[in-house]
């Protein structure tokens, strides 16, 4: 009796410590985003001189106004949503089956296959051969290029494989096999429903990757109607560099420099707004994905 009470008070102490640590952590982690929000509605001069710290200074919504005035923004949003949805769907369709099969000991030569995959994590052909390759498939300046490129990330596949290998008991598969299930059925009917947590992780990894991607679009797309959001946002940000570049440019007049400096000041303000504008949609989706992590309970019940 005494030990149990001791244990409970010990647990309470433990709980308290966890809460304190995580609350402090919460504040530390909240601060950068909060700071970005403050900066996005503050006078850029106040930001530059370090006055903005715990609250916005010289409140202005000009940054958001300018960002939303940017007419291409909505085209970008539309494209990004398409690329993210289609791209992530393709990613899952390729990664999950592959990772599952790679986790099975019955797969002969899986170490060799692993090597085949892993080499590509470290060795790549470089910009020019990769570009010529994409061109040879006729994918240049095509929306499908944005969906197909990066169809599988070997890194994510390995992460998923680890999950399958360790979280799904062999007994379940054995039992299913005895019941006459083939591998397709086992994967579709038994494994997938048990893999909500890893699917959630993959959606998060791949989805965010697509959402934030700009390099492929920058290299392979010419038609502005197909540009993703991030590419347009970068165009706004680049304006902050023109003034600095122009300082050493012989063809730039003083008036133009003043104008470029003005643009650069605006871009300084907008760079914070841009983070908010492009991140807010993701912030709404996370809590929904987090629920998948709780669903793991099912495995326990199956095991039992």
């Amino acid at each position: 009796m005494k030990t149990i009470r001791k244990q409970i008070s010990g647990d309470k102490f433990f709980q308290l410590m966890v809460t304190i640590i995580l609350t402090v952590f919460f504040i530390i982690e909240l601060y950068p985003m909060l700071y970005v929000v403050f900066c996005s509605i503050s006078n850029p001069d106040a930001v530059a001189s370090g006055e903005v710290l715990l609250w916005p200074v010289g409140i202005t919504l000009q940054g958001y106004q300018k960002v939303f005035q940017y007419r291409d923004l909505w085209i970008g949003y539309g494209n990004t949503i398409f690329y993210t949805l289609a791209g992530t769907a393709l990613n899952l369709a390729i990664t999950l089956p592959c990772a599952y099969a790679m986790s099975r000991k019955e797969l002969m030569g899986r170490n060799q296959l692993m090597l085949f995959f892993m080499i590509t994590m470290y060795v790549s052909g470089g910009l020019i051969p990769t570009y010529l390759n994409v061109k040879s498939f006729g994918l240049l300046d095509s929306r499908w290029c944005m969906v197909i490129l990066g169809a599988i990330s070997v890194y994510n596949m390995i992460v998923a494989r680890t999950f399958f290998a360790n979280s799904i008991p062999d007994e379940i598969i054995e039992a299913a096999r005895i019941d006459g299930c083939n591998d397709f059925r086992i994967f579709g009917k038994i494994i997938l429903p048990l893999s909500k947590a890893i699917t959630g992780v993959l959606v998060l990894y791949y989805g965010t990757g697509h959402w934030n991607a700009y390099f492929d679009a920058m290299i392979y797309l010419d038609d502005r109607k197909k540009f993703p959001l991030q590419l347009f946002l970068r165009e706004i940000l680049i304006q902050s560099k023109f003034a600095e570049e122009a300082l050493t440019d012989s063809t730039v007049s003083a008036e133009e420099l003043a104008y470029l400096a003005e643009l650069s000041k605006n871009a300084d303000l907008m760079k914070y707004c841009i983070i908010i504008v492009s991140t807010v949609p993701l912030m709404f989706i996370y809590p929904k994905l987090q629920k998948f992590f709780e669903k793991g309970v099912m495995i326990g019940s199956v095991k039992g």
Binding site: Y131, R234, E235, I238, K241
Partner: peptide, 15 residues
């Protein structure tokens, strides 16, 4: 995009 330009130029040359 001015930051993509040098890569773009290289690729135009290469192809």
């Amino acid at each position: 995009d001015s930051e993509a330009w040098s890569s773009k130029l290289t690729l135009m040359l290469a192809s």
